[in-house]
């Protein structure tokens, strides 16, 4: 792991209210360059709201937040050039082929055609689907789609990639392969911000925060959290916090 002291996300007192409902209650945390930051919490804990704010998709009610050096209130368009995002809902175009999807996303980030072609070849090679590039995405198995979606989210070499429950609904083998892709991205210096429900995945993170009812209840490395809560694994830690 590349550990530095350079902060890529600085989040101070993030609050998001929807009417009288407080989705995110005073979240404060930093994310360092090159780390895998796990963002854990039960359904409805406020994870997706927070991730949307960090991606510039949603304006926070209050708080000082900067992502990749951009202010999330004013510099959202600049911010979007520097981040990648893969949402819970599957986000590739099913009626386009693998190649057409890559060409589209590469194109809208203003990537040079030559560079894009090279990257496309490398990527398809790595995913082992070089022979499938003219296949419609709709006809591919879910695991492939998710790996492809992740590769597309980091195609333009973002500083940070946000993954919102990226491995929902896939088998353990594919999940393992998916995490290998994440490690490769980290090697290239990309910071990974990931939400998940799977506690074994939490063990793969450098640091995890655990949210409950809109608040961050714990934030540390998995080892320290296990020690602190006197738990054998992250599953127990999570249950103790979320109850």
């Amino acid at each position: 792991m590349v550990e530095t002291n350079e902060k890529v996300i600085v989040c101070k007192n993030m609050v998001k209210r929807f009417g009288s409902f407080v989705a995110d209650d005073n979240l404060t945390f930093d994310v360092y360059k090159g780390e895998i930051f796990g963002f854990l919490g039960a359904n409805g804990a406020g994870k997706t709201t927070a991730i949307r704010i960090l991606c510039g998709l949603l304006e926070p009610t209050s708080g000082d937040i900067s992502v990749a050096g951009c202010d999330v209130y004013k510099q959202t368009e600049q911010l979007k050039r520097r981040i990648g995002y893969m949402s819970q809902r599957f986000s590739l175009y099913e009626d386009l082929t693998v190649y057409e999807n890559i060409r589209f996303y590469g194109g809208i980030y203003g990537m040079d055609a030559k560079v894009r072609r090279q990257k496309t070849d490398d990527m398809l090679e790595k995913l082992g689907i070089a022979d499938q590039k003219n296949r419609l995405v709709a006809s591919m198995p879910l695991g492939w789609k998710q790996k492809l979606a992740f590769s597309l989210a980091i195609l333009h070499d973002p500083q940070i990639v946000f993954l919102d429950e990226p491995t929902g609904g896939v088998d353990p083998v594919t999940r393992r392969q998916f995490w290998n892709l994440i490690y490769e991205a980290v090697e290239k210096g990309i910071t990974v911000f990931v939400t998940t429900h799977y506690m074994d995945e939490a063990e793969y993170c450098d640091r995890v925060s655990i949210m409950n009812n809109g608040r961050i209840e714990a934030l540390d490395t998995p080892q320290r959290l296990k020690k602190l809560y006197q738990a054998e694994n992250m599953d127990e830690v999570f249950l103790k916090i979320a109850r």
């Binding site: 368009e77 979007k80 995002y85 986000s91 996303y105 980030y109």
Partner: peptide, 13 residues
């Protein structure tokens, strides 16, 4: 409805 618009919205389009 499909949700692809969210992906579009995080790009600099």
């Amino acid at each position: 409805e499909i949700g692809t618009i969210e992906q579009i919205n995080v790009t600099p389009i």
